[in-house]
């Protein structure tokens, strides 16, 4: 049981980053970005390239990957989404799917279809009271917690954080208060891209990376965000942890390849019963 908890926590922690990223962009732009999975993939592959092809230390490569996807997300917004701000959310949705298809296949074009792993030294797993915790899981724990605390501090205590929350809360009033929406949106995309890329790196550390990975994570990411109440970024983190645990516990009575079905069933039940999320408060929706 303890082992299950550790594994569930790892899954949940990895999911927390892109779920936060998705909820963040949704809260500010009111549009669900289906390209988030491909940001995860691109982040993992850029890191792999820096780590293996350029032989840089793993952590340097991870930073390069995150910064690259942060800039990519900002550029995609400038190239694509910015021109559609006044359109309906549905158009943006379909456009983000187009972005996802294009990005995933750019990765395929350069990296082929076979799975790859990072060049990191293998370490012996640690044992705490009979529970096996490997080096990778510790790195994941520390990285995710670090990233989350950083985001939380920025959100809570900086002018920029207030600006992001203000735009999410009441965009019209935010502009009256002199907040430049365009700048806030750029920061949100940078953050969203960086966090997604980091998740891709951690997935690679935990298992391996392949061009399909982001696509496979799309449903769990959305489920985690919806669990938290999709417009509340920090609650998405809690949603991710709950989903990670649920997926892990489900392996007790379901074959592991059905984790996706677990995510789907949770999402469906939630949408029918508590569409504002487990942790979110009820908000107005059509």
């Amino acid at each position: 049981m303890g082992q299950l908890l550790v594994n569930g926590l790892t899954t949940g922690l990895i999911l927390a980053l892109p779920a936060l990223a998705l909820a963040l962009s949704f809260s500010v732009l009111r549009f669900a970005n289906y390209a988030i999975g491909s940001y995860v993939t691109v982040g993992a592959f850029v890191t792999w390239w820096a780590n293996v092809a350029l032989a840089l230390p793993f952590w340097v490569a991870a930073i390069i990957g995150s910064v690259a996807v942060a800039s990519l997300a900002v550029s995609i917004d400038a190239l694509v989404y910015r021109h559609m701000r006044e359109r309906s959310g549905l158009t943006l949705l379909v456009a983000s799917m187009g972005v996802a298809i294009a990005l995933e296949n750019v990765v395929r074009l350069f990296a082929g279809n076979s799975p790859r792993s990072f060049d990191v030294p293998v370490a012996r797993p640690q044992r705490f009271f009979d529970i096996r915790v490997n080096q990778e899981q510790l790195i994941i724990l520390i990285t995710v917690l670090g990233a989350l605390i950083l985001v939380w501090l920025v959100f809570r205590f900086t002018r920029l954080g207030r600006a992001m929350r203000a735009v999410a809360d009441n965009a019209a009033l935010a502009s009256v208060r002199g907040i430049a929406r365009g700048r806030v949106i750029a920061v949100v995309w940078a953050l969203s891209g960086g966090l997604s890329a980091l998740a891709g790196v951690l997935i690679g550390l935990d298992t391996s990376i392949e061009p399909q990975m982001g696509w496979n994570y799309l449903l769990p990411i959305f489920t985690a965000a919806i669990l938290g109440g999709i417009a509340s970024p920090m609650a998405a983190v809690a949603g991710a942890l709950v989903l990670g645990m649920a997926e892990e516990v489900s392996t007790l009575f379901l074959p592991p390849h059905y984790r996706m079905i677990v995510a789907f069933v949770i999402m469906a039940a939630l949408l029918m019963l508590r569409p504002w999320g487990l942790f979110g408060t009820k908000w107005v929706q059509r």
């Binding site: 972005v99 296949n105 074009l109």
Partner: peptide, 19 residues
């Protein structure tokens, strides 16, 4: 390679047309 290129084209065209 062709399959990837074709899908890159489809994704890009989708986005460009929508814009």
């Amino acid at each position: 390679t062709l399959a990837s290129l074709r899908l890159i084209a489809v994704g890009t065209a989708l986005v460009v047309l929508l814009i």
